[in-house]
Simulated assay, not measured.
Amino acid sequence: MQDLVLACHITGVYDVNRNMTLADDSYELVREWAESVAAAKMKGVIFHNSFSDHTCAKYSTEYISFERITYNPAFNPNVFRYFVYRDYLASITQVQGVFVTDVSDVTLAQNPFIHPLFTANPDSLFCGDEPKTLHNEWMLAHAEHLRSQISDYTDYEERFASEVLLNCGVFGGHFPLFFDFLQQLCALHEAYNHTNKTAYTGDMGAFNYLARTRFNDNLHHGAPVNTVFKAYENERTDCWFRHK
């Protein structure tokens, strides 16, 4: 049985988070992620649409591998990555634990799969969070499209308004629970987010909605899963992942 850390790097598409289009074949954008995973001697997979064969050969190791994908512009890269993970995990066997993370602003600090909190909670979803509540100006704008599509979305926003905002830049769990969550997340995007014409991707909205309405009783977020978001706690080693 193997544990996996997965990330996706798609270029050639305007990045709404950085307000730019990422350069093709730039390993520097994923270097810190890859090196942190390899340093922990863990299996990491980077899905990509632009690394050259030379780059993949140069940086592939016994721990880090590259999988080329064909990007479907029907979905924003922030959303399309979940379909990539779903299809990949459906095609392989002998997976025990999985985390999926952002690739350019997340690094691994310690192996989550051997931590007592993880091993003792096979039915839990582990994810990042932010030092703010669900009810905030950015999330209200971000969820405009989903609010118009999902009948109970407004009720969910009101019910969990004062709860901590979850961050989908880091999430994982034991394979059965994780894959169930991932399949439901993809189904939400396929059903409700494919017609999204707003300036927001909907990834945070769908993630928080699903986690809070269907997995809230078995949810672990914040330390030790992640450092404080955007606090740039680069020296912390007591959490599993550093997120900005």
Rank of each mutant, 00 (worst) to 15 (best):
A74C: 12
L146I: 10
L117G: 01
D129C: 15
D105R: 03
C8F: 05
V98L: 05
G12W: 02
E130Y: 09
N136R: 06
G97W: 04
G97F: 08
Y59D: 04
L117F: 14
E62Q: 13
D105H: 06
Y85N: 06
R81V: 09
N208I: 06
L22Y: 10
S151G: 04
D203R: 03
H220W: 09
F229W: 14
Q149L: 03
Y192R: 01
N196L: 05
P73W: 01
T93N: 12
T237D: 08
P131I: 12
Y153N: 09
N111G: 04
C186I: 10
M1R: 00
I46Q: 00
R81G: 09
S26C: 13
A74R: 14
I114R: 11
N17L: 09
S151A: 14
V170C: 02
C186P: 07
T213A: 04
F113V: 07
E163P: 00
Y232N: 13
Y71A: 08
L185G: 00
Q183M: 04
L140R: 11
N226M: 07
Y71G: 08
E137D: 15
I46H: 00
H194M: 02
T55D: 03
L165F: 15
L22C: 02
A34N: 01
C168D: 03
R212N: 13
T133H: 13
H9I: 01
T227E: 05
Y232S: 09
S26V: 05
T198R: 06
G169Q: 02
T93H: 12
C168L: 01
L134S: 00
D25T: 09
S60N: 11
L182P: 02
R147A: 13
D3Y: 08
R31S: 11
Y59A: 05
N218Q: 11
